[in-house]
C-alpha cells in the first residue's frame, strides 16, 4: 500500500533521511520508533507531501506520489496528525472537521450527508457536545481528539499518527489502545510514531527503528525493543 523507496532528504548540510525503505501492506499497523531528530517527522512530511525528497520515490496504492502537492496526496487517501495538534484555532470544532469531509477523498455530494459525517466523527472522538465551540477554547486533551477527528475527516485509507499516546496517563493510554483497535476494525492502514512498548506491543504488527535518518532495525515490537540497535540509538553506545 505504501512504498517508500530509498528516500533521502537533506536540509542544508544535514542529512535528515538516508535511503529510507519502508513497505507497509494494506491494513497493517506499523510503529515508528527513534530518538529525537532521527527523522521520524521528516519521513511523515515526505509521505504527506510537505517535504520533497532529494532522492527516492514514494508510492501509494500503485500511484507514484513523490513531489505531488499535499492537497493531492490528501485526496488520494493519506491523512495525518501532528505531534502538536494544529486545528484551525478560530474556526468552530464542527468546521474544523467539515473542511476535510468536504475537500478530502470521495466527499459526499449532499450537504446533509457531510454534516452527518462530521457528527459521526465528532462522536467517535467524544467531542459531539463541543461542535460549536471555537477550537482555540478546547482543553489540551480535547484538542488532541479534535486533531484525530480532523485526520480522519478526509476519509484516509492510510493514517500517519504522530505520538498519539505520548504524554498521556496510563488510563488515557488504554483509551488510545482501544482507539487503535477501532481504527483497525475500520480497515485502516496505520503508520504510527509511538515511544511506548506497551502501546506498540498491543497495537502494531511490526516496528521500524530510525536512527540518524536511516532504518536500523525492523521486526516485532518486543524484538526491536530488545535490540542492540535500539540501545545504540537511544544511549549512543557503539
Amino acid at each position: 500500500m505504501l512504498d517508500v523507496r530509498s528516500v533521502s532528504v537533506a536540509f542544508g548540510g544535514l542529512r535528515a533521511l538516508r535511503s529510507v525503505e519502508v513497505a507497509i501492506a494494506d491494513r497493517e499497523i506499523v510503529g515508528l520508533l527513534g530518538p529525537n531528530g532521527s527523522g521520524k517527522t521528516t519521513l511523515f512530511n515526505v509521505v504527506s507531501g510537505l517535504v520533497r525528497p532529494a532522492a527516492g520515490e514514494v508510492w501509494f496504492g500503485g500511484v507514484r506520489i513523490t513531489g505531488l502537492a499535499p492537497w493531492k496526496i490528501a485526496r488520494l487517501g493519506i491523512g495525518r496528525t501532528f505531534q502538536i495538534a494544529r486545528p484551525f484555532p478560530r474556526m468552530s470544532v464542527f468546521d474544523n472537521v467539515l473542511a476535510g469531509v468536504t475537500f478530502g477523498a470521495r466527499p459526499a455530494s449532499r450537504r446533509i450527508d457531510r454534516a452527518r459525517e462530521v457528527d459521526r466523527l465528532l462522536a467517535t472522538v467524544g467531542l459531539a457536545e463541543k461542535a460549536s465551540a471555537r477550537a482555540s477554547t478546547l482543553s489540551l486533551g480535547e484538542t488532541k481528539r479534535l486533531e484525530l477527528a480532523i485526520a480522519l475527516s478526509t476519509r484516509p485509507t492510510l493514517l500517519l499518527l504522530d505520538e498519539l499516546a505520548s504524554g498521556l496517563s496510563p488510563k488515557g493510554r488504554e483509551e488510545v489502545i482501544r482507539f487503535y483497535a477501532r481504527l483497525r476494525e475500520r480497515g485502516l492502514t496505520i503508520f504510527a510514531i509511538e515511544h511506548s512498548l506497551a502501546v506498540l506491543n498491543e497495537v502494531s504488527d511490526r516496528v521500524l527503528l530510525l536512527d540518524q535518518g536511516a532504518v536500523v532495525a525492523e521486526g516485532p515490537p518486543r524484538a526491536v525493543f530488545a535490540s542492540r540497535e535500539l540501545r545504540a540509538a537511544y544511549l549512543g553506545d557503539e
Binding site: G79, M91, A99, T154
Partner: peptide
C-alpha cells in the same frame, strides 16, 4: 476560512 487561518494545514485536508 481554512486557507486564511493556516494554508499549509488546509492543503493537508485536500484544499
Amino acid at each position: 476560512r481554512a486557507v486564511r487561518e493556516a494554508a499549509d494545514r488546509a492543503a493537508l485536508l485536500g484544499i
